[in-house]
Amino acid sequence: MKAPLLASIDIGSNSVLLLVGRVINGKLHTELQRKETIRLGGALDSERNLEPSAMERGLECLRRYAALIAHIPPKHRRIVATQTLREARNRDAFLHQAQAILGCPVELISGEREAALIYQGVSSLLPASPERRLVVDIGGRSTEICLGQGSHLEKAISCPIGSVACAQRFFGDGVLHAERFAAAHAHAHALLRTHMADWNNATWEQVLGSSGTAGAISKALHQAGYPAGEITRPTLFQLQQQLILAGHIDRLPLQGLREELRPVIAGGVSVMCAVFDTFQLQHMRIAQGALRHGVLFDLQQSIQSGAAPAA
């Protein structure tokens, strides 16, 4: 019997991502991927309501995705929403319309559940290994950090700081002064420290960066002549210095940086620098897996076991 076609959608703070594929003998065979930068995370007003224009951008994206997965039964789809909708006071209005468009539930998952699914997505696309892994995923409004061995997750935290939120708070006018980076770093570092009280004795052999911020930083470094698919402490802090020398996001010399990432790259670099300092990292490799992969693998396991997916 042929493995069923599955679809997962990650409604994130910066992007909405679609993944369609089959899991055959534990391996993902991807048939379709889509990513649209919607930037919901930059559209929360002073009362933490999602602005109507942003809500409509998100719903229009989901209408396009619904057409792409119309041939997939609703029971073989899984859609999750993350930090921006965790924060939004009017999230129910968005979630209700999204569910009607997609024809299946839209799950608002907790930060800890998001971290667990990220770890599952990353580990599922890696070869079996006894190495202990630290996985870092800097999103638009939250950062998930996971520690595990092989496919087994041991610890996970979700910290309410991300590239969009940091960029809005410290670089909203586009100015990239050293003092702004210092303030952003201190803020992110303090938030991270409050969430990792029981991590003092944690150890790992491998550090992996998942999702958009890590990928964008790695690509910017590769365009500057550094090895592809990795971030090191010296190159990361050199990139921060390059942003400071540019002085403004309109003067960024970064080749290969997608235009929609220009307003948030300083926030992403600041959070990544704080992660490197908090965990005393020297090197990070970019992972292929991310939340959408974990959601799809989790769905496949739920179908096999006949159980409902964990919320």
Rank of each mutant, 00 (worst) to 15 (best):
Q33P: 01
F276V: 05
G212C: 05
P105F: 12
L291T: 00
A93H: 10
N49F: 08
R141S: 13
R262S: 06
W204D: 01
Q120V: 01
D173G: 07
Q206V: 11
P73K: 07
A290S: 14
H29T: 14
L153R: 04
L221Q: 02
Q280I: 07
V16F: 04
I231Y: 00
C104P: 01
G21M: 11
S163N: 00
S151H: 15
A43Q: 10
P234Q: 12
R64C: 03
Q206M: 06
S13H: 08
K219T: 14
K27L: 13
I9P: 00
G139P: 03
A214H: 08
R89H: 13
E179R: 15
E107W: 07
I249H: 05
Q33N: 10
P253R: 07
S15H: 11
T203G: 05
G140H: 05
A3P: 01
A128Y: 07
Q255H: 12
E260A: 13
L40I: 13
G42E: 09
L147I: 12
R285N: 09
I161H: 07
A128P: 06
A224Y: 01
S302T: 04
F170P: 01
A183L: 15
A190P: 07
V295M: 04
P130D: 09
L44A: 00
T278Q: 15
E230L: 13
A98K: 05
V164Q: 06
L191Y: 10
V122H: 06
V136P: 00
E144K: 03
Q255S: 14
I24V: 10
M196S: 12
A66D: 08
I145V: 12
R285A: 15
L68S: 06
V164F: 02
S151G: 13
L5A: 09
G306F: 08
S305Q: 13
P227Q: 04
A274K: 03
Q238G: 10
E60Q: 15
L50N: 04
H185V: 02
E154L: 14
G139M: 13
C104K: 02
S302V: 06
L239G: 00
G150T: 11
C146T: 06
Q149N: 13
I157T: 08
Y119H: 00
V80G: 01
S270Y: 01
D173T: 10
S158H: 05
F297P: 00
Q282M: 12
H96W: 02
H96M: 12
A100I: 01
K27M: 10
